[in-house]
């Protein structure tokens, strides 16, 4: 039997490295125990990632044992509260708290996801922002959610979890799929179009963020979602981390970088962070009022 020892999980690049290594090493194992003795803290990205890993193991492993009793009490309470434990077959009903519920989607449900963001993520009791700003943020996050379905081909679905940090007035959301990754999707388009396939993962990821670039050739123009999101994050002091295949994109403090990443991840993990302060936001300015076409 293989034992996965879940470490303490924050949401820095080194934490994503650990999570991806765990996924790469264990997701095809047949006899597995998950042990939380070393896990003293777990952020929303860890919850979403483990949701994917356990879902995969529940489908494919012959024997899976989740040792809930090895969890630290506070961590366990947090995982019960956000619905992770019950979703994984453990005991305990979720309740409302600072953790935004764990969620798995196997098909696109944009209305339900919007409601989730509205009810749990941008909760009125937590943050004081105008309805316009709330709608603007939700629109941008929905672009991400739909992108995860349109391009990934994730066989086990899309996993989300969030967290509100009242002390720093931050909202974080992680969305993970276990599909082919953004560079894989971009490269698929290139092969289909008989272009040169010799493009690095970090360059392919950068291309996916460029305006009008779509990895999914159709008979209509597309390929704006990631570009719009990037623009929003750059203008509004947000942070966006994307880990996919052998590339890591970081958009923060008005800058963007696309770098080689190891270990490779056959999927896409996105961590998005907003500061909940209305004064910091630019909603694109006044509309110029010119004709649209």
């Amino acid at each position: 039997m293989d034992i996965i020892r879940i470490p303490k999980i924050n949401d820095e690049p080194c934490d994503f490295q650990q999570l991806i290594s765990i996924w790469n090493h264990y997701h095809d194992k047949k006899d597995i125990e998950i042990n939380f003795s070393d896990c003293k803290f777990i952020r929303q990205n860890g919850v979403a990632f483990l949701g994917g890993l356990i879902t995969r193991l529940q489908k494919n492993a012959d024997h899976l044992s989740i040792r809930w009793e090895t969890l630290d009490q506070a961590v366990y309470a947090n995982l019960v509260q956000n619905g992770f434990v019950s979703a994984m077959g453990g005991d305990g009903e979720p309740w409302e708290g600072n953790s935004i519920p764990y969620r798995r989607d196997t098909e696109i449900k944009s209305d339900s996801f919007e409601q989730y963001l509205q009810d749990y993520w941008l909760k009125r009791e937590w943050i004081h922002i105008s309805p316009d700003l709330s709608d603007f943020i939700i629109s941008n996050v929905l672009e991400l959610y739909m992108n995860a379905f349109e391009h990934s081909g994730s066989p086990i679905g899309v996993f989300s979890c969030g967290q509100h940090y009242p002390s720093c007035n931050e909202l974080i959301l992680t969305i993970i799929d276990f599909g082919i990754g953004i560079p894989g999707s971009v490269r698929g388009y290139y092969v289909g179009e008989c272009h040169n396939n010799d493009v690095s993962d970090e360059r392919a990821l950068e291309m996916a963020f460029e305006s009008g670039f779509s990895s999914n050739p159709e008979s209509y123009p597309r390929g704006l979602g990631l570009n719009l999101l990037k623009e929003f994050v750059l203008k509004n002091n947000g942070t966006l981390d994307v880990y996919t295949n052998k590339a890591h994109a970081l958009i923060r403090n008005g800058c963007e970088s696309y770098e080689k990443w190891s270990p490779s991840f056959d999927g896409t993990a996105i961590n998005i962070r907003f500061v909940c302060n209305e004064k910091l936001y630019v909603l694109g300015g006044e509309d110029c009022g010119d004709m649209f076409f």
């Binding site: 316009d132 009008g212 123009p221 704006l224 570009n227």
Partner: peptide, 18 residues
């Protein structure tokens, strides 16, 4: 809305290029 208008103008610009 301002948000809708912003996205629509970008979509039109992109479609014209496409």
């Amino acid at each position: 809305s301002l948000n809708g208008s912003h996205i629509l103008r970008r979509v039109i610009e992109n479609a014209q290029k496409y």
